[in-house]
Design a protein around this nucleic acid. Structure first.
Length: 133
RNA sequence: AAAGCAAGUCAAACUAUCGCCUGCAGUAUUGUAGGAGGAAAGUCUGGGCAGUAUAGAGCGCCGUACUUCCUAACGGGAAGGACUGAGAAAUCAGGACAGAAAGUGCCGCAGAAAGGAAAACUACCAAAAGUAAUUUUGGAAAAGGUGAAAAGGCGAGGUAAGAGCUCACCGUGUUUUUGGCGACAAAAACAGCAAGGUAAACCUUACGGACUGAAAGACCAUGUAAACUGGGGAUAUACGAAAGUAUUGAAUGGUUGCUCGCCAAACUCAGAGGGUAGGUCGAUGGAUCUUAAGAGUGAUUUUAAGACUAGAUAAAUGAUAGUUAUUCGAGUAAUCGAACACAGAACCCGGCUUAUGACUUGCUUUUUUU
């Protein structure tokens, strides 16, 4: 299974990030909050993501680094859930991923939470599709 | 054994799996090489580099302040001097260590008197008056009292009592000599010592200071916004057909705060040029690092040989599992359990400051044992 999560998956365009926050469509699964938007991406990959740890909560730079690295690791391991679905639906999505807890959590917990988060996101997307139809 | 001080070293290692960033090779997703710090931090300083201005001058403003040396430079460092503090001493530690005979200001309370060529409260001495208690006048800064500080200290002589009034020693000042590159030190002679402190008050002296900061700046690409260049705008009046001449005036903004000087906007005409998003460079080979030999007390430096050692850009350097190492606790032991600091490069170097774990060496103190 392809578990890479390279530069292609990183969301850099400032315009798209601004657009994400215009829509205000979010999915929550403690300790994460994710903002998303369907849009055309400058990459061939089905999704691009920004991982963020708020500076207000984590003052020290090395703490933020630690959180972001853990998050990226769990996303990398779980991305197949989302990626398979999106390829099937032939869509591209931009994600803004925020860690909201005030303390660092264990890797195993985060792994399970990420899995739940992606499943929740897929469910919400398919509900939207049903409503449209 | 514990605590403190000083100096130094390291900043756990390896394997497997899955990944991230950069370079190179191949080629179309593989291989290979490399990938955080001693403080990467604070942004407190000195430079490089880049841009703006290059039309500055005067005054102001800001910084630095023992000596010599090091350095690209410094407010940094080294060695040394004087001072202050600690200590029995050896020695150690400290820093707003230029100037108070240029001037101005300030020195509260207490006290008789605190900066005026001034001062007598108590007690002391002398004279006069008075029967006496005492009073008046004069002498006197030695004693008491006040104060952070009372007019060099201490002892002896001297005197009515006293006083550098005189003398010895010490202190202070001036001059000379000697030593030292110098800060300064030592010695000798002279001066009887009437005059202080505060510059971390203004101030004076010497030296230095243009501003901005990698989000600087250069280029590509796209193509009609700003900005750019030149003219008008940009003085008024009189004379003149005009060119021009004479007299008069100079707003507002910018240029470091002010003055002088210099330059200029909106708007408009013409020219030339190429905005935003995005990308490339800047940008990692350098006041570089390592080793050896030499110079120097030292900071540092010279020569030789070798090395290339992060370069991201919403920002890589990671996660999981296991083994070993270190420390702590338990245990006779095998072993078991736990811990493993401060902290994340962002243009690059020199320094300072702050945070912080473990170990090694030396010194000091305390306790226990012999």
């Amino acid at each position: 299974m392809n578990q890479t999560l390279g530069k292609e998956y990183k969301l850099c365009s400032q315009k798209i990030i601004e657009q994400i926050f215009e829509e205000k469509s979010t999915v929550k699964q403690f300790p994460f909050v994710i903002n998303y938007r369907f849009t055309e991406l400058p990459s061939s990959k089905p999704f691009q993501i920004v991982i963020s740890a708020p500076k207000r909560i984590f003052r020290k730079a090395h703490d933020r680094n630690r959180i972001k690295r853990l998050c990226r690791e769990t996303i990398r391991k779980n991305k197949y859930i989302l990626e398979e679905y999106l390829i099937e639906q032939n869509k591209q999505i931009a994600l803004f991923f925020v860690y909201t807890n005030k303390e660092e959590m264990e890797y195993e917990v985060l792994f399970k939470k990420t899995e739940q988060l992606f499943k929740k996101l897929i469910q919400e997307i398919s509900n939207l599709e049903l409503q449209k139809n």
